[in-house]
């Protein structure tokens, strides 16, 4: 459900910063970063999301030797069985990200090793105009450093929709 161990690596920060279109040299250049207030290559604000890379069981990454629900020859790599319902990922609606909140106790820097723990939060339902019944569920992930100090608290809210969101 979460990574056991999330090493914060400079190369990973560089790739992440590129992908969000941020050319701030504090994410790329250790010498430049050393002269800034943070003093080190620092994680961009949403970087802990990339801890998914280190989560062995993360469901949204193809796994060696396991079926993947994205397209190959067919539109889905998983045959939809009538009884298996939406859980295959072949469903019409599926999960979307509704909210994300971070509290920074400090900002992770290259070289940190973070230890995330997840706890489920509330779940609630709502009738949506554009996508039918909405089921919201909250997860709180605490990222602690090697000393057990809290570094980042992340609260995410996911939503499963009854049907795709109307455009």
């Amino acid at each position: 459900m979460v990574a056991k161990r999330f090493p914060v690596e400079a190369g990973h920060i560089m790739m992440f910063a590129r992908s969000v279109g941020d050319d701030n040299q504090v994410y790329y250049d250790a010498e430049y970063a050393a002269d800034t207030e943070v003093g080190n290559i620092v994680a961009p604000p949403t970087f802990v999301q990339a801890s998914a890379q280190f989560d062995e069981d993360y469901v949204l990454r193809p796994k060696v030797g396991k079926p993947w629900f994205g397209s190959g020859k067919e539109a889905s790599g998983i045959k939809k069985e009538p009884s298996s319902g939406e859980k295959s990922g072949g469903g019409s609606g599926g999960g979307l990200h509704a909210e994300q909140h971070y509290e920074y106790h400090r900002h992770p820097v290259a070289g940190d090793i973070l230890y995330p723990t997840a706890k489920p939060g509330k779940t609630w339902e709502k009738e949506g105009k554009r996508s039918g019944k909405l089921v919201f569920s909250e997860t709180v992930v605490e990222y602690r450093d090697a000393n057990g100090e809290l570094v980042v608290t992340a609260r995410g809210v996911g939503v499963r929709t009854e049907r795709p969101v109307d455009q």
Partner: peptide, 23 residues
Amino acid sequence: GMTGKLLTDVVGDGRLTNYGVRF
């Protein structure tokens, strides 16, 4: 993440104490 760039450009690196959004 892209919106976070505006924030760090404005407030500086390592200065945020919290950041939360709805999609």
